[in-house]
Computed example of a mutant assay.
Amino acid sequence: MAPVPAAPDAEPTSNPAGLALARVYAVFPAAIRFSCGIAVATVALAVREPPVQAVPLALAVVVLTIWSFVFYRQTIDNGIRARIVLVDCALTITACLAMRVLVSPEVMPGGVSWVAVLASTSIITAQFALRVVHGVLLGLVIAAAYCVGAILAGQTGEAVSHSAVLVLQSFLAAGLVYLTRRSGRAADSVFTAYQSAHRETVIARAAREAERKQNRDLHDTVLSTLTMVGLGGVASQSAMLRARASSDLRTLFDPARRAVLDPAAKVSLDERLRLVVERYEGYPLTAALEPCRVPSVVADAIAESADAALSNVVRHAENSVAWLRLHHTRDAVVVEVIDVGPGFDMAAIPPYRYGIRESIMARMTSVGGTARIDTAPGNGTRIHLEWADVS
């Protein structure tokens, strides 16, 4: 039988929502951490009233500024990582515990000091790299460190109020990250299910098309030839029978001998139709074929449709004559199969009959062409095959 075409490759399964979310989880924390580092350095150096100590403050500003750049580069290049977040939180906890010598008392109330901003930033960025439970726990540790640092600095009210704010931030940030992760997983799950269904559809469509092609080949070769012999349309020792039998065997059992061409490669349609004419040696068939080149897949469809039409002529229009014509314009290629046989009533053809419906009409439709049957009882038959995508 004809070789079964391989199913087209489906798009590889991926997680586009997860990949997009991972990118956001890298860019957003990196951006806010870097901007916070620059702002913290500027604000910290602007307010240095006692008991702020210059050396610890300068050291903290230098370390945190350098770390902000390292955090940014590592996160942008490699994504948000737990080890980067843990180092960041360790530096923040250290700054919180040392608030007594790093932050002036008059700017500490209200959570407006640079250490308070640093603590909030670290809590938020930590949620992007850690699991929800771990992120919340780390946020609580930072809030506790801020509380202890504020108490050591003599700011008990600030210790309670802003620590509570940091705890709330921990839960809110963790909840937001959890929802976005869950939404991303749901979107990827839907996309994966779509890909799987799409691939199954593609495979099923390819299998159906392969089955239809094999049925057409079988119908148009051995079954057609045997039917012609059975109806007396072909003599058992005729040259036409020998030519058809040889061609049928090559088509069905030796597909490897047929050239495999790029479907878009241009071939000579008139040469393909001359091969069809050879199958009807001895039958009163007149061919008028203008030179014409079309894509190989189109040439195959038109030639096989014309062959099926001529087979119908031999089987059903006994003692008739037939014409095969090929002409083309700048806009279309037209092939006509004409006979002066008895004709038939198209409306009376049963739906299970395969020849015209599949071997001609469906075959032409598969390459973007059309097939029109003009016939009536007693008036012969004209089969008009047209492919209009000529360039």
Rank of each mutant, 00 (worst) to 15 (best):
E49H: 06
V267G: 01
E271I: 15
A54V: 11
A22M: 05
I32S: 04
G378F: 12
A6G: 15
R205A: 09
I338E: 00
R244E: 04
R216G: 06
L176P: 03
D270G: 05
L176S: 07
R372V: 09
R100A: 14
L152I: 14
A197N: 12
R257D: 12
L21W: 13
V267L: 04
A143N: 07
K213F: 09
V141H: 02
D331R: 14
F344W: 13
V167I: 13
A371T: 11
V298R: 02
A31R: 05
Q155M: 08
D389F: 07
L172E: 04
A144S: 03
A210T: 00
L57T: 13
A376H: 11
V297F: 03
T286I: 03
W114I: 08
R315Y: 00
E281P: 04
F344A: 00
V276R: 00
S170D: 00
D88K: 05
E271R: 11
V87E: 14
N312V: 01
C292P: 07
A143K: 02
D300C: 07
S104N: 06
L285H: 00
R131W: 03
I151P: 01
I151E: 09
Y194D: 07
F191V: 15
C36P: 02
V335C: 08
I84Y: 00
R330I: 07
T227C: 10
R330T: 09
E200P: 01
G355R: 03
E336T: 13
H327E: 14
A322C: 07
R199E: 15
C96Q: 09
F34G: 11
G110S: 05
L86K: 06
R250I: 10
C89A: 13
N319Q: 15
R293V: 14
R48G: 03
S196R: 11
V112W: 12
I142R: 04
